[in-house]
Design a protein around this nucleic acid. Structure first.
Lengths: 270, 270
DNA sequence: CGTCATGTTGAGCGTCATCAACAGGAGTGG
DNA sequence: CCACTCCTGTTGATGACGCTCAACATGACG
């Protein structure tokens, strides 16, 4: 039912990188022990000097910063297979926090093992670097999102990005034209990600629902008409660097029954 | 008067990395031919597949994205010694544009030579990676800035960041408590960076001036009281990863007469 | 001297924040 | 089992921050 830990990581890396057989073998040799982490729990804190990298195995994590005023800004979401603090390998002190959403499983890999891994399979170093560059591209798009788009488009864009990123790792559902994905994010958190008040998030969601752009049930968002949502959002998946390998991925080598298995649609939200 | 090209790059890399003698030697062997680029000229365009990396030798560049609505968002500024499209080494297609401000000199290094460089001095690969990670940290802070801070703090924060980054490469001036730095950015562009209308930028600048937080003369910003500005902005230089090496840098090995030499305070602005 | 880019000012308005109250569901303890 | 609390979502009222439109000032430049 659930994928073996190494395969979750491989699936994510393959969603925007070409892995060699050697890369895959090297990854499978790493010891990955997923452990459950309670919801809403910091796994990295501002000022920490982690000696390990966390890999999300199930559920979501989010990265945020706190201002002196007490306000918070979420700057990214992270999905199964991602290594949100890979950077701690090169930048010792964390300048932000990373927290779990609900139903999260995390594996911790010591920096030394990560360095071994890259030494054994040098192509992986480049792939990891590339991965952090794609993160950069996502940050850039978030700056655009928060800086320029009005509320409705902003949240629509967030949904588009989330869908595409989750689709790349097989964690969405499609039924005809209809697409849906887990969304374990409360309106308060969505507000902190979008740079909006929770109240306004609520009203904007209602507007999105009223115009049939999305619907929400039990911690999942449904998109009845992708093209319309994409157009409203002004969404262009370019920056995610995943289209090129997408077809290759669709005929990928993991069991197709496990699509939603690591997606963690537990919380009630939206 | 002006630093040799390789030294400009080295100075920047040393501002947040420890370079070995071998690294420096390898860099000095790269052929760097700075060429002037006219103001307000794109050096990378969305969709491009660059085969070279640009290195800023003098003046500033900025990175921006355009929305379908025609609005623009500047997502970063780049200073002498920086390689704004280093990422093109690993991500072939650009998802954004990079343009010059005034008085810019740019050197173009073919990807093949960049790869040679990293092969010859493997520590540099890690340093380049690290550099892109610091860029990420800056993007994150911009998301916070645009997402959470009100206009006055937002622009104050931008000034703080700019000062610290420029100081790390020796392109600022200090006279007693007073600090100043070149600012060749028009109010329209500042608006595009801050996610504000130009009109509101204008009024916010007036407010900053009225409260003696900054003053502006001939394309330079002066900060009479750093601590006050920093406090208003809620600025914490943590994320720039430069403090650790700052002292080492201050007694650095480039001629101290050349402080402002590559700074390009040409345009009239603010 | 005219043109253009940039900065400045005023007026009006809209998006979105804030404050407050309430509803519903989940979990908890008595 | 019920009462209680807490979290989340929802709604209304009010006002502020920042946008838009428009006009004008200023200096650089040809």
């Amino acid at each position: 039912m659930t994928l073996p830990p190494a395969e979750i990581l491989i699936r994510k890396l393959q969603s925007n990188n070409a892995l060699s057989e050697g890369d895959r073998r090297a990854i499978r040799e790493v010891e990955l022990k997923p452990r459950p982490v309670e919801a809403d729990h910091d796994i990295v804190r501002h000022g920490d000097r982690p000696s390990q990298c966390a890999i999300i195995m199930a559920g979501w994590a989010y990265r945020y910063k706190i201002l002196s005023s007490g306000r918070r800004q979420i700057v990214s979401f992270h999905f199964p297979g991602e290594m949100p603090d890979l950077q701690s390998l090169l930048i010792p002190r964390s300048d932000h926090n990373i927290a779990t959403l609900s139903g999260t499983m995390v594996a911790l890999v010591p920096h030394s093992q990560m360095r071994d891994l890259m030494a054994r399979s040098p192509g992986l170093a480049e792939i990891f670097w590339r991965d952090t560059l794609i993160d950069s591209a996502i940050y850039r798009e978030w700056v655009v999102n928060v800086g320029q788009r009005p509320a409705l488009e902003r949240i629509a864009h967030l949904f588009c990005e989330t869908f595409v990123r989750l689709e790349a790792i097989g964690l969405v559902q499609r039924a005809g034209e209809t697409r849906s994905f887990p969304w374990p994010v409360t309106q308060v958190l969505l507000g902190e990600a979008a740079g909006m008040s929770a109240v306004h998030v609520n009203r904007t969601l209602q507007e999105l629902r009223a115009s049939k752009l999305i619907s929400t049930h039990q911690g999942a968002v449904t998109i009845p008409n992708w093209d319309r949502l994409e157009e409203v959002a002004g969404f262009d998946p370019d920056y995610l660097s995943i289209e090129e390998i997408q077809t290759e991925l669709r005929e990928g080598d993991w069991p197709s029954g496990s699509r939603f298995a690591n997606g963690a649609a537990t919380a009630q939200s939206s």
